[in-house]
Amino acid sequence: MTTVGMTVNGDPVSVETEDRTLLVEVLRDQLALTGTHVACDTSQCGACLVLIDGVATKSCTTLAVQADGSEIQTIEGLAKDGDLHPMQAAFNENHGLQCGFCTPGMIMAGVDMVRRLGKDLDDETIRSELEGNICRCTGYVNIVKAIKAGAARM
């Protein structure tokens, strides 16, 4: 067992884990942060995206030990003092989700898009930037709308 120290959603945490354990497993099973989901095993669907030191990362493709010393932000840490993050609010207002399973990853992808490309995102950019996020429910129409609106308000 290895001790991994991280800051998760602003709180310092220390967990004992095997070296083979994935970050997403530690988040979900040891820290009870079940908002981060796993929907594939080939690192393609994006449901597991979290921010590691501000950068969107597939937590299913990251060992927990690799994140030692890092600052992690999950979907549970986006809303501040009960106020939804603009990206979260935009998903609600634009009906950008149906079953909700891919949604945390979609929201994280939207947040990361703004970090890399700024707040003014056009439809074509958003469509191509969602290459790593799969949704079966929405047909993406309203996800694109939601990210555009959410980005503009960030």
């Binding site: 079940t34 908002g35 979907i75 549970e76 939804l84 998903f91 989700l97 909700g100 399973f101 945390p104």
Partner: peptide
Amino acid sequence: DRRFTTGQGTYTG
């Protein structure tokens, strides 16, 4: 939606 956008949905897993 608020449940799902904040990571508070509860799926079987």
